[in-house]
Structure formats: C-alpha cells, structure tokens
C-alpha cells in the first residue's frame, strides 16, 4: 500500500468539490514564514510511517510569528529524521468547529465502503461511526448521520446535516470513480454552521 502525495490527494478532493484547507510543502522555515504572510499557520510532518501525527507531536498548530514558525520548523525536522522520507507541510489555520472523520475503504469482496464518525482525537476512543456500501443515496447519508450516538454534537441538532450529507455524497462518488483507492481518511474535517474544511487527508493506493 502506498500513500498518495498530499498535494495530489488535495487536488483529487478539489476535483470533486470537497473543500480542504489551503496547504503548501515547505522545505525551509523561510518558505513557511512567507506562506503564513502574518496569519497563523500549522506545520505538519507527512510520512508513510506516521499515522498518528498529533499523538507523535508531529503537528504544530497556531504559529503566528516568525520566531514561532522557525522554532517549530526546527523541532519538526529533528523529530522527523527517523521518519524519512518525509515532507513538511504548511497549512492555514481552520476556523474552529466540530471535528469529524469521513473515510473510505475498499474491500476485495464487496467493493467500496464509506464511513462517517466523530473525528480527530476521538475517533478511536469513542469508535462512534456509521458505515455503508457505496454508492450511497441522499437518504442513506441522512440515515448514517442518524445512526451516530454523537449525532446531536456533529450536526448541531440537525443544522449541519445538509452540509455533512453533501460531503458524504461527494466522497462516495470520489471512491466509486477512482478504482485504485484502497483507504481514505479525511480526519479531521472541521465543520461549523458556516461551512467545513478537510484539515488532514490520507489516501492509500
């Protein structure tokens, strides 16, 4: 299994109209500073060998000043030595909201499945998710949301159900139309009443 390059993966999401946070690879701290342009950014290490980035201290959020960015960049490059080959990605900070996961998995027997659940650091702690065989209908997507124990948190008592349903339909189409994908994680997607953005993307071929 091979991890699809982050920027390639982002392009694929763009093609299906799935919004993700503005990102760029940076090879020096100066590049990161210029990307930030005075706005707070996140720096992350991208490597095949690191699934749990946040837990491993490979995510540095809320970097606003040149000093913060430079310090974080140096820390990440030293931590990532054992994760070679790796890249460092700079991302704009997403607005705050509820963290969800939308995922996909190909099964050789049955085909592609789509998943939605409480995301971020809660994924494995609560294991609260709904799973369906693709392609799904709008009604399926609404049923999936209804199955979640955390449905009231995730949908803000129903207000964001339409947004989430639309994401699910788009991801289902992406999974169906792209044969080579074996696994997909959009975790987290940050959802609020004003919209959503995928903050981390992981596609395995």
């Amino acid at each position: 299994m091979q991890l699809l390059d982050y920027m390639e993966a982002k392009k694929l999401l763009d093609k299906y109209g799935i919004g993700s946070v503005e990102s760029r690879y940076v090879s020096t701290s100066a590049e990161a500073v210029s990307f930030s342009y005075g706005n707070p950014i996140v720096l992350k290490v991208i490597s095949d060998k690191a699934l749990h980035k946040a837990k491993a201290g490979l995510v540095k959020p809320g970097l606003a000043t040149k000093a913060e960015i430079t310090g974080a960049f140096r820390e990440l490059t030293s931590k990532a030595v054992k994760l070679k080959p790796y890249k460092i990605i700079a991302q704009k900070m997403a607005h705050s909201g509820v963290e969800i996961i939308v995922g996909g998995r190909a099964d050789p027997q049955f085909g592609k499945f789509i998943l939605i659940g409480l995301g971020g650091i809660y994924v494995e702690a609560f294991k609260d998710f709904a799973l369906r065989l693709c392609p799904i209908t709008k009604a399926d997507s609404m049923e999936m949301l209804g199955q979640l124990r955390s449905k009231d948190i995730i949908t803000h008592n129903g207000k964001m159900a339409g947004t989430l349903s639309a994401i699910l339909m788009k991801v289902s189409r992406l999974l169906i139309e792209n044969d080579g994908i074996s696994e997909l994680d959009l975790n987290p997607i940050i959802v609020s009443e004003t919209g959503y953005t995928a903050v981390d993307i992981r596609i395995l071929k």
């Binding site: 995922g103 998995r105 099964d107 998943l115 659940g117 494995e124 799973l131 696994e183």
Partner: peptide, 14 residues
C-alpha cells in the same frame, strides 16, 4: 492499519 478508517471498519464491521 494504515488509516483510521481501516482501524474502525474491520471485516466484520463491513
């Protein structure tokens, strides 16, 4: 598992 999705959705879950 290589992804959170695969860790959650094992064969039985599928």
């Amino acid at each position: 598992a290589h992804s959170h999705t695969a860790a959650l959705a094992g064969d039985y879950q599928l």
